[in-house]
Design a binder for these strands. Structure first.
Lengths: 180, 180
DNA sequence: CCGCTGTGCTTGCTATTGCAAACGCGCTGG
DNA sequence: CCAGCGCGTTTGCAATAGCAAGCACAGCGG
């Protein structure tokens, strides 16, 4: 009865950690928690307190609020904030990165318009009447599951974006409209 | 920094409660916690978890973040997560797309940290000689100290991310941001 | 006077957090 | 072949979060 699955918070942490390419023990040390406890958190066996969550966020160099939102502890801010506006206002990324984000976002919007010209293909954003973490799945809508190695993020593209990772194919990465 | 604000959080809660002119038991019932526990929280004898804090915030009809800041669980510093919160709040994209955008943005941040470590944890505040994110031309200016010619979007991975989507078309991701 | 209702506070008690120590597994090297 | 190291995980155990029950005090009506 002790609901064993706290939710996607653990998966999210592990995801971020693996993407950052640091070991569980390293993150545990950086966050100031014990390794076994972090392991249990990532597998959803334990429900970390906000303090621990905050320290983990610091260790991951991500915002605490992002984790709190993932944990369902913070009501998402009203959709008043625009993604494009936020991206343009961000000074922590370079001009090029900014443009990439904008391109991706706009292409997503285009794809959705092509698929659902209706209005928008939104799913479960604000609808959270009962925060009962009893679902065996994440809090996302049933039609989306975030598979870990198919469509979610092949993480190979990260290498393509990293200059120090691999030189990928030189020349073909120009954003020019390369009509085949 | 271990627990200096635990007392203040309780005072804050009691302040808000008395200001709302509701009794301890009423707030306890509204927040779904027991009266004695709320009493102990208000006097700083107990350190409530984020869940309890969130419920209390709901019962008080105040924002959870305000309480978290009071509890010292959120740095009040200007969060770099404006982009992240905006992405999370956006309901025009699917869950999968949202996760991709978040991953990309965070990988960008990590990338920059690796390249320019002196600028990482600090909030990069405002000063930027080129505040206008006009990306009409990609080369912009040589002040780009971070990654160089990598951030363009191979747009091929976009198709890989959306196997269920129509192949939109190639030339739509031109970097010319024609907002407006 | 006594009972009733409201307030906040104190007292055991159980369930859970969070940790130290130890384990199994894979890899590297003597 | 086994020592050594690093990885994630498992196993008890101390500390405490959080609750049900009960306490002490104050106001009100018979």
């Amino acid at each position: 009865m002790a609901l064993p699955k706290v939710g996607s918070i653990g998966e999210y942490i592990r995801e971020q950690r693996t993407h950052a390419k640091i070991s569980l023990r390293q993150l545990a040390a950086a966050a100031g928690v014990s390794n076994p406890y972090l392991s249990q958190i990532e597998r959803g066996l334990r429900k970390p307190s906000a303090e621990i969550l905050n320290q983990i966020a610091k260790g991951l160099h991500i915002s605490s609020q992002a984790l709190y939102v993932q944990a369902g502890l913070i009501e998402e801010r009203e959709p008043d904030s625009d993604v494009l506006t936020a991206i343009r206002a961000d000074h922590l990324i370079t001009e090029r990165q900014r443009q990439v984000l904008i391109d991706i976002y706009e292409s997503f919007r285009r794809e959705n318009r092509a698929e659902a010209p209706d209005e928008d293909a939104q799913t479960s954003q604000k609808a959270r009447p009962a925060p009962e973490p009893h679902a065996g799945d994440a809090d996302s809508s049933p039609d989306e599951k975030a598979p870990n190695e198919e469509a979610s993020l092949p993480e190979g593209y990260l290498a393509a974006l990293k200059p120090y990772a691999a030189p990928v194919d030189s020349g073909n990465v120009t954003p020019e409209s390369k009509e085949g």
